[in-house]
Design a protein around this nucleic acid. Structure first.
Lengths: 246, 246
DNA sequence: CCGCATTAATGGTTCATCTTTTGAAAAACC
DNA sequence: GGTTTTTCAAAAGATGAACCATTAATGCGG
């Protein structure tokens, strides 16, 4: 079917026959990247898009779905429904990151090592940039954790303790760090559903000290507190791993 | 938010009517998470899955497509085609991360700040863990960069210089750090396509010094070299931002 | 044994049609 | 007049059947 005039020059490059729906995603991505579509904007309905692209509605939907999964669009049904450009959040990053764990690509030791690195930096930046409101939120979180413990609601305590990290990351005002840190915390959460949680009664006192250092804007002490806290965790997982492989 | 009266007995389910294709993705994700499906395994054909799920082939395809986009499956067509569980790589993380930049959520200053943090840590770990082969690869990369400069091929030099970071991250042997760092480098690359690149003639000498420190396993000097290198970049972007908003 | 045409299996695409959800307009009610 | 209920239309969601395109295995002829 392919005569010589098909590909006259030896460009070896392209390959990977593009599927129709990828053309849809590329074009829409391009419009967003160029600013022609902005967060909150509504795209034409599936039927209109299908006509404009000269594709079937099904194929267009696959493209829209792809962008929805990628977190760039939100598809709303109903009378005023349609495809809307999303205010970008890191949900897609977080879930695809978590998939790496599901696929067995990430071991607990890998995660805690990376967490240590980012957590210390996040703590330092939070110390510099946290507003009073941020600090109040953190304090409320610690208090909520205390209450969960007193109720004996340990799953809830775990959830609150992880939430603490999310709040801390928010203080940095840096979306890159926020999404990275949130993703790592999400994986941690998923790990805790499978692995035995480290009991770690040292967490609460550590949190209280950390809170004090944050309020005092004592960056070094705050960072050190966070670091030693996570080092315990790292040691726990490394010893678990040793047990597992023994 | 405090006492029991907050949550009466009837907490009215969360719901959020699940779409049919999400059931497909959840079930397959579950099978992978439980180890019933492992990387490399082939799923039944779309037609068979449609029958087993009691769904139309179209709907099943949407589910498979979703997992393909998430990077968990690979769909191959042809006689021996089908859906295969992928060896997990961070592609999906990287592209969804890059989407945050496309959506305008990430500014250059955010990225370089985060890069500084991770890069220094990556450098330290690379110093500890890089094999001789790793170091040879890094050296070859620097040499390639030199040659690109002498050819005057600056886009190629940029590509090679970013590749240096990818190689460095690989030395850490930590998939979490690798994927995070790769993602940041990819965003950097996309930024360079839009923004004026920092000329930065200081890169090559810095790279050579860094390479020396890596070979000498001199962690502190290597980390310092990387840090001061990126600080220049950060200053460049901050001054650009100041110009832009002026 | 090799080379080429055939064939079967698979994903890719399209079409037509139906269902469900949702918001808003119209109607009924007080 | 204002409020509630009903109706309606627009949109995505789902379906099933058909057809196209690609790929690897099969088998035939040399």
């Amino acid at each position: 079917m392919s005569d010589a005039s098909d590909k006259p020059l030896a460009t070896y490059a392209p390959v990977h026959t593009k599927r129709a729906f990828e053309e849809v995603t590329d074009q829409i991505r391009g419009l967003i990247a160029r600013g022609a579509l902005r967060p909150g904007d509504r795209l034409p309905s599936e039927r209109e898009l299908a006509e404009q692209f000269s594709l079937s509605r099904n194929t267009v939907r696959e493209g829209l779905r792809a962008l929805e999964i990628a977190g760039m669009l939100e598809l709303r049904k109903g009378a005023t429904g349609g495809a809307f450009v999303r205010e970008g959040q890191g949900d897609a990053v977080i879930s695809s990151f978590a998939d790496l764990f599901i696929l067995g690509k990430i071991q607990p030791g890998h995660l805690t090592e990376a967490r240590q690195i980012v957590a210390v930096a996040v703590t330092r930046l939070a110390c510099q940039r946290a507003s009073e409101d941020d600090l109040d939120e953190l304090e409320a979180n610690v208090e909520a954790s205390r209450q969960a413990v007193s109720r004996g609601d340990f799953p809830e305590r775990t959830r609150i303790n992880l939430e603490f990290h999310r709040l801390l990351a928010k203080c940095t005002r840096n979306p890159v760090l926020i999404v990275i840190y949130d993703a790592m915390i999400e994986i941690q959460r998923q790990m805790l559903e499978v692995l035995p949680a480290a009991p770690n009664s040292a967490v609460m006192p550590s949190r209280e000290r950390l809170l004090g250092y944050l309020r005092a804007r004592d960056e070094d002490r705050a960072a050190h507190e966070m670091e030693s806290n996570l080092r315990l965790l790292q040691q726990h997982y490394l010893s678990e791993q040793a047990k597992g492989s023994a």
